[in-house]
Amino acid sequence: MFEARVAQAEILKKILDSVRELVEQGNLDCSGTGISLQAMDSSHVSLVALLLKSEGFERYRCDRSINLGINMQSLGKIVKTAGNHDAITLSSEDKGDVLGLMFESTEQDKVSNYEIKLMDVDAEQLAIPVAEYSVCVRMPSAEFARITRDLSTIGDSVLISCTKDGVQFSTTGDTGSGSIVLRQSSSVDDEKKAVVIEVQEPISLSFATKFLVQFSKSAALNESVTLNLGDGVPLMVEYPMKEMGYVRFYLAPKLSN
């Protein structure tokens, strides 16, 4: 028996919004420690890794580890029908073929029950090693969304160059070019609005703009985002979710051949 209850549907809505355009289907791996999901986009250059820790749920029970193969669009559509403040309980029998969803309104005067058919999702599980990153940039997630959106009007690659002085996002396209530099915040009145740049070694790497734009749509998950860059490893973009866990996106760099 698997059962997980979140107090507010809002967080699940935000999580599903952040991954469902990138990932069509995936396996929710449910175990005693929580729910995780690893899924690639259809072109296999990016990967989403989601972790929802059991402590982040109001109630959590998973007697034995199970894989729930889910169509993300279907799940997203159903969860969207819940009120933001509704409690949501996800459930599945050990050998069940459906994922049950129960929404309860705050006044407990409305209860909705849905079932989604489970599917066989053939997804390879990858071991993601802990990478040594050369650069870690923490910045407001809204700013990251704005920068990627603004540069996406010009070019299909964004070069991210980082030194101790700042981080530069630049692009070139048929119609011209553009670049935006962010400097490290000198005074930090508000942690969430700060730009913090940690540099072990300066680095410049190029990435597909359309994926950065996709990732940056997760801004609702956290006011801050971290970009982790290293030589020879994929970019890791992380949106932490307080006690709940995180959504991480990995993207292969564009390498000149």
């Binding site: 250059v45 071991a127 090693p129 000149s256």
Partner: peptide, 14 residues
Amino acid sequence: IPVQKNITSYFGNR
């Protein structure tokens, strides 16, 4: 022309 490797080439199978 820049190339993007498959993301699986960076991560091992579990």
